[in-house]
């Protein structure tokens, strides 16, 4: 089970039997509209606030994941979720609607993989047979929470990122058909003293590198063991910085197999500056896009490294630097196992 200091190997290989993904209008125009089960053409989703819209997306993603599987909602033992809004209320309310016992998490944009790692751990240890694991974010709700009112005309520098409006949810099960969760490495908080909240890619890159390095070492595999190593939301700048850092540590990941959800979701030309971000970035990218590649047998093994910056507007104003974390989960097709 535990290998090294912070890597779990899941001997029973929990299965992702189904997924549900939801996106907004901006995502519908993006690079991978096929990755979404539902695309809304209204930022409000007919709700009275952006926070409520986010809650609705989380509920929808969970319901789609259940519908896409062959099981009933009552069979799901736990719902593990979190998001970026104060006291993760959208997740809390979604858990109320779903009426499933609930773990609330916060790892900012790394929440998706923290939740998947814990779900797989519980299932691997016979703590449950079905667990819903997901997360949601909403562009306008996040802007309001962390930056300025959405209609405020502040200029964002080219290092800024665009929060994904969407939700991604995976139904993890003990047995069944689908991609298998094989291992996870839990991240440490890494703080390199970056204070610019408009440059989160550079702040998060060292955390991603630390987790990737640890994962490869503790599992004792080469980067090429994986077909793709996918980061959550490093964006252009974070990706380049992290590649340089990896090279300095003599970890050679070929450029084409080092991908970023934040650079996958949107098209060239959309005004997202350095790329996508938000808890939904890694969730939608992984569950909507990259798992599909596994199902279509284009790839066999992927390592998803979701990156999160754990600051708050308050901590930034009080001149604290930006603490970051990255959690890695490996997902494999299972076709080459037994």
């Amino acid at each position: 089970m535990l290998t090294g200091h912070r890597t779990w190997i899941y001997n029973n290989q929990p299965v992702i039997i189904s997924t549900g993904t939801v996106g907004g209008p901006f995502e519908a125009n993006g690079n991978i509209p096929d990755a979404f089960d539902i695309l809304h053409d209204d930022m409000w989703l007919k709700q009275s606030s952006f926070e409520k819209a986010q809650r609705t997306m989380m509920e929808e993603a969970a319901q789609i994941a259940i519908k896409n599987s062959l099981i009933q909602k009552e069979q799901v033992k736990f719902f593990i979720s979190g998001d970026l809004i104060n006291q993760i209320t959208p997740s809390n309310f979604a858990a109320k609607t779903l009426d499933i016992p609930y773990f609330g998490l916060f790892s900012a944009c790394a929440t998706s993989m923290e939740s998947l790692a814990l779900s797989a751990f519980i299932i691997n240890g016979d703590g449950a047979d079905y667990i819903l694991s997901g997360t949601a974010s909403h562009n306008a709700a996040t802007e309001k929470q962390f930056r300025y009112p959405t209609e405020y005309g502040g200029q964002k520098p080219p290092t800024a990122q665009w929060t994904v409006t969407g939700a991604g949810c995976a139904l993890v099960a003990k047995n069944g058909e689908g991609p298998r969760v094989t291992s996870a490495t839990i991240g440490k908080v890494v703080d390199m003293g970056i204070t610019d909240a408009f440059n989160m890619g550079a702040a998060m890159a060292p955390a991603a590198v630390d987790t990737i390095e640890t994962h490869l070492r503790e599992r004792n595999v080469d980067p090429t063991y994986y077909d793709l190593i996918i980061t959550g939301d490093l964006g252009h700048i974070g990706r380049e910085v992290s590649m340089d850092l990896l090279q300095k540590k003599n970890i050679d990941i070929p450029e084409e197999m080092y991908r970023d959800c934040g650079l996958t979701i949107y098209r060239e030309g959309q005004p997202v500056l350095s790329g996508a971000s938000g808890t939904a970035s890694s969730a939608v990218g992984t569950y909507g896009h990259f798992l599909k590649l596994i199902k279509e047998q284009q790839v066999n093994r992927i390592l998803v490294v979701a990156t999160g910056s754990l600051h708050s507007p308050l901590s930034v104003q009080q001149n604290d630097s930006i603490p970051c974390i990255a959690h890695a989960v490996s997902i494999e097709s299972g076709s080459d196992n037994q």
């Binding site: 409000w44 952006f50 562009n139 306008a140 009112p149 209609e151």
Partner: peptide, 10 residues
């Protein structure tokens, strides 16, 4: 007045 007649566009 703006708050009365407009909703944020996002």
């Amino acid at each position: 007045i703006g708050a009365i007649i407009f909703k944020p566009k996002g």
